[in-house]
Design a protein around this nucleic acid. Structure first.
Lengths: 133, 133
DNA sequence: ACATATATATGATTATAACATATATAGAAA
DNA sequence: TTTCTATATATGTTATAATCATATATATGT
């Protein structure tokens, strides 16, 4: 049996599996880092604003940051000052900024595709009653 | 080196990797089959309207159809009449229709997330000049 | 006879997310 | 002072899905 999406209402269990937005975490991280250079743990907190439940999986966040750094879109340095364990502070590079622009263009075209789908959905099914589960 | 997205203009090679819309082929197949029961090969042709280049990979299309059938969202039967090789004709079931509704709700919420991103992008970067590659 | 269009299917590889843990620092509470 | 929690980063493992490659077969056009 396939996994369910859960969506907004935890009681409603639909089967659409439309939960994942592939790679979407990447532009979110870049944009957040452009707004304010910071570290992974705080980024997780901010990711909630972009719809990532609980800020997303730590593994996903930290690995994405490392990969972005490998590829030159962000840079990092250790911050040992202050309380608690050391933080790895990230900031966006110039190519990172370019990447945000690229992503934004792409996200706009994704919106267009999704809206095309909804348009067509409404034309053929939108006004019909739904079978409640 | 990471893969590039290609986007609209084949000459423009951006690095956003935002090409895939995970699982999006599923609601498209279901909606097309609701509009008109048909077979995989023709579905590939129609998928172009939803932004799938060349109608998407045949492997992806046929495997998705089989999986949807396994799960009871579509049914199929062989069509041996007519010219050319036999076609497997698919149509949507009632639970398949429900699934389209679920997907649509989800797609709407994905649009909202993407638009939230773009809004925030415009606030912090939208008016600035882009470094052309 | 050979190429092409139609039609379905499957094997193998790669990319990504999800799930599970491990490690370490520091403050608060008991 | 022991224990709990929050902070902070990291990695191993598995599951899922897209991509790439290829195989098979029917029919038509040249």
């Amino acid at each position: 049996m396939q996994k369910m999406c859960g969506q907004d209402n935890p009681k409603h269990q639909c089967h659409c599996q439309g939960t994942r937005m592939e790679r979407f975490i990447q532009p979110c991280l870049l944009l957040l880092l452009h707004e304010k250079p910071t570290h992974g743990y705080e980024l997780m907190e901010s990711l909630k604003e972009f719809g990532f439940e609980d800020g997303g999986d730590p593994g996903l966040v930290y690995r994405n940051l490392r990969k972005l750094e490998e590829e030159g879109f962000v840079t990092s340095e250790w911050e040992t000052e202050g309380t608690g364990p050391a933080k790895r502070l990230y900031s966006v590079t110039d190519t990172g900024i370019d990447l945000i622009h690229s992503w934004s263009a792409h996200i706009q075209s994704n919106i267009n595709r999704l809206q095309y789908f909804l348009q067509r959905y409404r034309n053929s099914l939108g006004s019909q009653p739904k079978n409640e589960e």
